[in-house]
């Protein structure tokens, strides 16, 4: 199919309109990039790239800024959220497509998607007022006294269980991204041709074997897509974690300590940043997140395209 349909004038104008519409994304993203670079130029000039990325110092008083702590916080919260969310989301998709009785499929599917509809500021308020106290009173002390005693693994659960920490933030993040992976995985599962599944059943495969050996490989592409989308969403999530992460610039091995992500730093400090260098460094952080997302998603896309080539047709 040629990109521009020259034969038919209506077709030509329609294709031009759609082309222009998709081009707005390029326009917007380059616009945002330019604004980010322009606003952070002061900080880039002072700290450079390597120093900014590796410095763990975030000190507004001495105007000495580095992104390492925020990058660490972003990775660890996102990583833990994915570890919780991916199995849960795939389980949900399997449940909806393979186990649930027909009359329950739609309601459960909608219910899970409703999780994505809840505004992130609500997640934030709920996290602060409801989840954090539960975490600090019950779950975190329990984790501390059980896994916390195991050597090596125990380092993850040290410190005072305040409920305002990496663990709580990750749990909230994971709840927020479950529906993204789940609904896309479900749609992908549904695309598996019934014929293929039935032939597997006819040779005596169990339900799980059909899911594992037929449905999952067939729909890998979609599942990856869903995970990539979740990852993108989790990296940039702000309000939901801003209330429960504590915004403490430190690199810590314990999940019971406060940390800072790039987004939380922005949300907490952007409106009160009083000096130009401070504000510029915050923009620099945003730029780092922007580039980070770019790399992560480009890698995800690379795998998706490879998977596509492998599984299509």
């Amino acid at each position: 199919m040629p990109i521009l349909q020259r034969k038919n004038p209506v077709d030509l104008s329609f294709s031009l309109i759609t082309a222009f519409a998709s081009f707005t994304v390029v326009l917007l993203i380059s616009g945002i990039f330019v604004v980010l670079v322009r606003e952070s130029s002061l900080s880039i000039g002072k700290f450079g790239v390597l120093k900014f990325l590796t410095s763990t110092e975030w000190n507004p008083v001495t105007e000495s800024f580095g992104a390492a702590t925020a990058i660490y916080g972003t990775f660890i919260t996102t990583g833990i959220a994915l570890i919780i969310a991916i199995p849960a989301a795939i389980g949900i998709a399997v449940f909806i497509t393979e186990i649930s009785p027909n009359f329950l499929k739609a309601p459960i599917g909608v219910a899970i998607e409703l999780l994505a509809a809840i505004p992130s500021i609500i997640y934030g308020m709920w996290g602060l007022f409801t989840l954090a106290p539960i975490m600090s009173r019950y779950i975190e002390p329990a984790l501390k006294s059980s896994i916390g005693k195991v050597p090596l693994l125990g380092t993850l659960f040290q410190g005072t269980p305040m409920g305002i920490d990496i663990l709580t933030a990750s749990v909230i993040l994971s709840i927020m991204i479950i529906p993204f992976t789940a609904s896309i995985a479900r749609d992908a599962f549904n695309l598996t041709p019934a014929v293929v599944k039935e032939s597997a059943y006819s040779v005596g495969a169990t339900k799980w074997e059909v899911v594992k050996d037929v449905v999952l490989p067939y729909s890998k592409l979609g599942v990856f897509g869903g995970i990539a989308l979740s990852l993108g969403r989790a990296l940039g999530e702000t309000m939901a974690v801003a209330f429960v992460l504590g915004n403490n610039h430190q690199i810590t091995s314990s999940l019971l300590n406060a940390a800072a992500t790039i987004t939380v730093t922005l949300a907490n400090e952007f409106t009160e940043a009083d000096t130009d260098m401070y504000l510029s460094s915050l923009f620099y952080l945003a730029l780092v997140l922007f580039v980070l997302s770019f790399i992560v998603l480009a890698i995800a896309k690379y795998f998706l395209l490879r998977a596509e080539r492998k599984y299509s047709r």
Binding site: P60, V61, M162, I164, F243, N247, D274
Partner: peptide, 29 residues
């Protein structure tokens, strides 16, 4: 060691968001 500003590099402690957040923490802990 620390200095003065709208946000500083705190040597110790935990951070609450807003006066509300600090009030909550003090009430709780």
């Amino acid at each position: 060691r620390v200095g003065a500003g709208t946000s500083v590099k705190w040597p110790v402690g935990i951070g609450g968001k807003g006066n509300e957040g600090v009030s909550q923490y003090v009430k709780k802990a």
